[in-house]
Design a protein around this nucleic acid. Structure first.
Lengths: 171, 171
DNA sequence: TCAAATACTTGACTGAGTCCAGAATTCATG
DNA sequence: CATGAATTCTGGACTCAGTCAAGTATTTGA
């Protein structure tokens, strides 16, 4: 369990606390987890922690770019520890499962906009929306596979209906 | 005031009501408006409308692709009537002002992801984040210009702090 | 004109996230 | 190893965007 996480925190001018280490580990172990999922995860390890502490820690860590926050439409914020490589995300409209994908175009080309309106652009956030193979299948034969949002006639494009189990451990 | 909005609704199988027309006009007149802003706008015109009606109408219109919903991180959903041209958005981290920008790469190339995990991708959502000229200026001389989020030491990357006046009518 | 289908209203409710003030830790010093 | 200032954590109330549900009103097609 001796990882360099404490260094990482210290290096960024943050105090090292059991809570923060646990949060950091939870993020690593649980990519694309929501704050609530992380709270649970941390509680299993640490015993107990307040919601506020988790939000605070996640907040400062995002600010220091130790972790990254993703906030897809219709879903609570998610956190991941893959930072600095400008990768993007692929999300299923059906079951909200989420994958990392590398930038389609190359290195960090995404930062070039046609007309930047004088902005100093520091990030291009790209989210691909679609249906995962399983949800495509399910749609074909009318099966609504478990964990897929109810109440959506056709697409479920919107709303608060993407929260069930959006995080099976990836691939 | 005779615009083709009623046709537009009818064509999409939606009933034509005063509320919907007003909402549609509000969206057109107020691009990138939040639901709350639109409610206000509509009330000024129509007299009164329920929140629910606005959410409902916006919902079906999004479903029919009459309008488009954008949900940038840390901001409530915004709506615009520019649909079908796959344009993207440029948002200031400082004051949350938002511009349309055309796709940097071409036609709808954004839909091609490197490894699509078998997904059937139907949309690529691209948001450029940065600082607008005014906020850059303000940062330089320590001025926090009106309408910029408080309580953010450096970036204000997160949180519910992007809500003040995110919508001066664009250019 | 009339009934079925669709839309609107009111009001309570949820879930994610924030604010606040006091208590507890951490860590740089002496 | 004390110690105290700075930082972090706790618990609880609160806010905001959005949803649910049930009853009423409007639209529309026959």
């Amino acid at each position: 369990m001796r990882d360099g996480l404490d260094q990482l925190l210290r290096k960024n001018g943050l105090q090292v606390t059991a809570q923060r280490l646990a949060i950091l580990r939870a993020v690593a172990a649980h990519p694309h987890g929501t704050a609530d999922e992380l709270i649970e995860e941390v509680r299993e390890v640490i015993g107990s922690i307040s919601r506020q502490a988790v939000y605070d820690s996640l907040g400062v860590m995002v600010e220091k770019s130790i972790i990254r926050r993703i906030q897809p439409a219709g879903s609570p914020a998610r956190y991941e520890d893959r930072v600095g490589d400008n990768h993007h995300h692929l999300i299923c409209r059906g079951c909200a499962i989420m994958f990392d994908i590398d930038c389609a175009v190359g290195e960090t080309p995404c930062l070039i906009a046609d007309d930047d309106h004088g902005f100093e652009i520091d990030e291009a956030e790209v989210i691909y929306w679609g249906y995962c193979p399983e949800c495509q299948q399910a749609a074909k034969n009318g099966t609504s596979r478990p964990g897929s949002p109810k109440r959506s006639k056709k697409a479920g494009k919107s709303g608060r209906n993407m929260k069930e189990r959006a995080n099976r451990p990836p691939s």
